[in-house]
């Protein structure tokens, strides 16, 4: 019992770590982007300020489902983050860091947010949710195919298991071992993070930030926290799956930073797709590459 409570405490620690890490990372990357545009940029801790400011404001609520959805969203994401390994040894629930838990438990959070947004009664929110879900359908399929290839190769769907398989030298880092798959995964990750060119569902000027249109104050703050943790989960997934995980926490931070920064830089120079372009894009080349990669790796056994 005590052990489980300890684990849960540990897990909450991981979630908090993720939040802090990603929020700081977000601030730093805003700074980097600003430098790229010859600006000074905000303080590195600007994102913290933003979130705490939102939490301090007096919000409006559109009924119980509006609030309930937000709680469910944040709860689901915190729950998901609690399973996330940071290094191969720092895992809250050892042996239970199954890949599918992340894919599906994260969906609870998404569902909560979608529900809450629709509950606000604003059509723009529903449109945003529609776009978010459509985008999800697009990026998730090629990504899952690549991950399935990895799971098939390593024979485990445990995230640390996959990371360890790369560290012990059974496989190269999968970004090298499965180069095509890696490219697909990068594109999918950009979709997951809602970075340009796939940020169709936020589209501030077009549909007034989509799902978030009716949020302000603490609900928005909680959604920001949720968003930060979601990014933490997704980027960490990527690190563990393709970059060989991390032996030490320092390595994790470095890899995490590189992945996030690179994606950020890429997204900063791109425009935005239309929603049906997103779908056709993902179902064209990334899916094709993912399938080719899977064929090569599974049926031909050519893994570098």
């Amino acid at each position: 019992m005590i052990e489980i409570l300890m684990n849960i405490g540990f897990g909450l620690g991981v979630a908090t770590f993720g939040f802090v890490l990603q929020t700081a990372m977000g601030g730093i990357n805003r700074k980097i982007a600003a430098r790229l545009q010859k600006r000074r940029g905000p303080k590195w801790y600007q994102e913290f300020i933003d979130i705490f400011k939102l939490l301090s404001k007096r919000a409006t609520s559109h009924g119980w489902i509006f609030d309930f959805g937000v709680i469910m969203a944040l709860g689901g994401i915190i729950g998901t983050a609690m399973f996330m390994p940071i290094t191969s040894s720092i895992v809250a629930f050892e042996g239970y860091d199954n890949f599918f838990i992340f894919v599906y438990l994260i969906a609870v959070g998404m569902l909560g947010m979608a529900m809450s947004a629709s509950g606000s009664g604003n059509p723009l929110a529903s449109i945003g949710v529609m776009r978010a879900l459509t985008t999800m359908l697009a990026y998730e399929v090629p990504f899952m195919v690549v991950v399935m290839t990895i799971i098939k190769l390593t024979g485990t769907s445990s995230l640390t298991g996959i990371a360890v398989a790369q560290q012990t030298g059974d496989f190269n880092w999968f970004m090298i071992a499965l180069p095509l798959g890696f490219i697909v995964a990068v594109m999918s990750l950009m979709g997951m993070l809602g970075k340009k060119p796939f940020e169709t569902y936020i589209a501030p000027a077009e549909i007034a930030s989509g799902p978030m249109v009716e949020y302000g104050g603490k609900q928005l703050g909680m959604l920001f926290i949720m968003h930060e943790i979601t990014i933490f989960i997704e980027v960490s997934l990527f690190v563990h799956l393709f970059l060989g995980g991390a032996e030490t926490i320092i390595m994790f931070l470095i890899k995490y930073f590189i992945v996030y920064a690179v994606l950020n830089l890429v997204s900063n120079v791109l425009g935005r797709f239309k929603i049906d372009q997103v779908v056709t894009f993902f179902f064209k080349w990334p899916l094709f590459f993912a399938v080719v990669q899977a064929m090569i790796a599974i049926h031909l056994g050519w893994v570098i």
Partner: peptide, 22 residues
């Protein structure tokens, strides 16, 4: 907003809806 004066360094930024804005 842009590089000349860069209001983001004050922590300011544009927002889409009145609910989110200060």
């Amino acid at each position: 907003m842009t590089s000349a004066y860069d209001m983001e360094r004050l922590g300011m930024g544009p927002m889409a809806t009145p609910r989110q804005a200060d």
